[in-house]
Amino acid sequence: MFEAKLIQGAILKKILDAIKDLVNEASWDCSSQGMSLQAMDTSHVSLVAVQMKADGFDKYRCDRSVTLGMNLSSLSKILKCAGNDDTITLKAPDDGDKITLVFEAKNESETSEYEVKLMNLDSEYLGIPDTPYSVNVKMPSHKFQRICRDLQQIGDAVTISCAKDSIRFAAKGDLGSGTVNLCQTASADKPEDSVSISMQEPIIQSFALKYLNHFAKATPLSPQVSLSLSPDVPLVVEYSITDDDGSDFGYIRYYLAPKIDE
């Protein structure tokens, strides 16, 4: 039996909003550690990895590991039926062919119950090496979202370069070009507004903005986003997931293969 209860159901709604347009079908791996998911987009250009730790849930029971394969747009449609303040409980019996979602409104006697069909998916898991990166940047997630949205008006790709204590996002296209330069902030009264840059070596790398704009759909999950870059390897865009108390619940990590000059 698998059962996971989340008082702040809105977190699960936000997670689905952040992945459903990138990945159509995926499997949740549920173990005593928590729920996790790894999937590539259909073009195999990007990869998304989600982790929700067991102790972040308000109740979590997983007698034996289960894989819950599902259509994410179906799950997202069902989660839209939950209110933002609802408690969400996921339930799956061992060897069942569906998952049950129970939504409970706060201070009300209303509960609703939905079922989503499970699918057997041939999931291909990629091993992601845990290596240090040349550049790590932490910045406000809304700023990253804004930069990616603005630069997509100019071109299809952004060139990210980092030198000393600044990071530069540049795009060019038929209409002209655009550049956004961000410098490290000195000290922050509000940590969520700060930009911090740690650089081992300068870097310049290009990425498709279409995917970065998909990743930015995770913005409501976290006030800060972390970008990690090294020469000729995928970019990592990470949003940590915290609950209202600020406790660490897990993360969404997106990996994006670079564009390489011919």
Binding site: S43, V45, G127, P129, P234, A257, K259, D261
Partner: peptide, 14 residues
Amino acid sequence: KSNQTRIDTFFAAK
């Protein structure tokens, strides 16, 4: 002109 690479050329299947 730049080429889009694929993510599965960087990370091997487990």
